[in-house]
Amino acid sequence: MSSPSSEAPKSAVSTSDAHSVSTSASVLRPSTTSGFPVAPYQPYDPIAEESEKKEEEPQSPDQAEHSHVVVGATGIFSRGYMTISYLLGFKERWSLTLFIVFGGALIGFVLARSFMLDPRASNQKRHLPPGEWFWAGRPPIRGALIAHVYSSFFLAWGTIFEFLPVLRRRTLVLHSINGYIILAILPASIGSGFVIARRTIGGAPDTQVLFYLLGLLVLISATLGMVWVRDVRQHRKWMLRFASLLGVVITARIIMLAARRIISDIGTYYADILDLQLFSCAEILALAPSTLSQYPSCTVAQQSGQFLGSVFVGVHASVNEEPINYGAAFRLAMAAGLWIAFILHVCGIELYIHLSEKANLHLKGYELTR
């Protein structure tokens, strides 16, 4: 989804060509603000830059001997790492590591949830957290859940390939087509997510607000990324924000795994009115009918013929008790994990963009246009 990157010209630029340097993919020209003279475009390579600095620094005999030992111990790994990095098109030393960590997390999450692609009710009911199927099995959430699972599956895979440098440098057409496919799938994923947000994880207002906010920010980031598609620097920033926001749910689930255990060990947490994570008596009856007598409000409502879906009660949150208690722990932990993950991702991606600004501005004073 980025604009073509220019290749380095083989010959120096003459004075007469100062205002027009053409390559097969791009045109490099002076910035309208700086008016700097044109110089041949050389891609920013921090690995080579660091190597030059190290060569200039004198080493003592002890340091030289130690460096030979280190190189001998890690040389095979380093060469393998740099070879893979080169083949995939990464230029910065830590880019491949970041791609493996964050891209691998996205791939792992997609593969781990791939069983949800089976739309049969029995399959999805078995794999959803306790209490979630009560609403997920009914329209319109049932259809929205299926649409969200399929659209998110292909959206995640498309995003992974979109961030491979070798794809956008060697086959720019495929990079662009993949980007437009992602943009076409995105509204379906976000729209179905908005429908599910009304009831998922208990449907509490705080989680609803987060899901709506997250969906809007993802859509805005992707749209602005397409608006700035011919400005490589701005396009890069917005697509990084887009990909980072997609990973909020993954980080939230990791936090949830620890949070629900902590909640259970403390033992004094309830999914109640204070947390806006109440269970309806109808949910309890569907999930654990034998425990309905433990909730007097539900018993009274059932005896009086009142609609059980309109009566809500607090449930003890613990993964060590009945499925209904496990569901309460999941709701409390996931709601907190979502907000923590959202803050971490928003702050983290802005920090990364700031720290990598040197690479993003290696053509400072110039405009790279199609």
Rank of each mutant, 00 (worst) to 15 (best):
Q303T: 06
A243G: 11
A252L: 10
P289R: 01
Q302W: 08
T291V: 11
I266R: 10
V315F: 06
S290M: 02
A258I: 15
Q294V: 01
R253N: 15
Q306W: 03
T299V: 15
E283W: 05
Q302T: 00
G247H: 07
V311M: 03
A286D: 12
L274R: 09
G309V: 13
D265M: 14
C281A: 06
S280H: 09
V311N: 01
R260G: 05
F242Y: 11
T291H: 12
F279C: 14
S244E: 05
V248Y: 04
V315G: 06
S264T: 15
H316K: 10
S290H: 08
L245K: 01
A301G: 01
R236T: 15
H316T: 03
L287T: 13
L308G: 01
R260H: 07
M256I: 06
S264I: 03
D272S: 12
Q306G: 02
Y270P: 03
L240Q: 13
L240P: 01
S310A: 13
D275Y: 09
V248R: 03
S244V: 01
C298V: 04
A243Q: 03
S293T: 15
A301D: 01
L274P: 02
I255P: 06
S310K: 04
S290F: 12
P296W: 01
L292S: 04
H316A: 04
A301M: 00
S264G: 09
F312Q: 07
Y269T: 09
A243I: 07
I284A: 14
Y295L: 14
L257H: 08
F312M: 02
P289N: 05
I266C: 07
C281W: 13
S280F: 07
I273N: 15
C281P: 05
A259C: 14
L276V: 09
R253G: 03
S310R: 10
V311L: 04
L246Y: 00
V315S: 10
I255M: 13
A301I: 05
A243W: 01
G267V: 14
L246S: 06
L274C: 09
A259Y: 13
L245E: 01
F307M: 12
R236N: 11
G267H: 09
G267W: 02
T299N: 05
A288Q: 09
T268H: 12
S297P: 02
Q277G: 08
V300I: 09
A286Q: 11
G247Q: 08
A317P: 01
I254G: 15
I255V: 15
L276Y: 15
L274V: 12
I266M: 14
L292T: 04
A252F: 09
L292Y: 03
Q302R: 11
M239L: 06
D265T: 10
Y295V: 04
P289E: 11
L274K: 08
L292R: 00
S280K: 00
L285W: 07
L257E: 13
C298I: 07
L308Y: 02
L278I: 14
K237V: 15
M256C: 13
C281K: 01
L276M: 13
A301R: 00
G309F: 01
L240C: 13
A286W: 00
Q294M: 08
T251M: 14
I254E: 10
L246G: 08
I250F: 11
E283V: 12
G267C: 03
W238Q: 04
D265K: 03
A259N: 15
I273H: 11
R241T: 00
G309N: 02
R253D: 07
W238R: 05
R241P: 02
L245P: 00
Q277E: 08
G247I: 08
S244P: 13
M239C: 07
S280V: 11
L287A: 01
G305C: 04
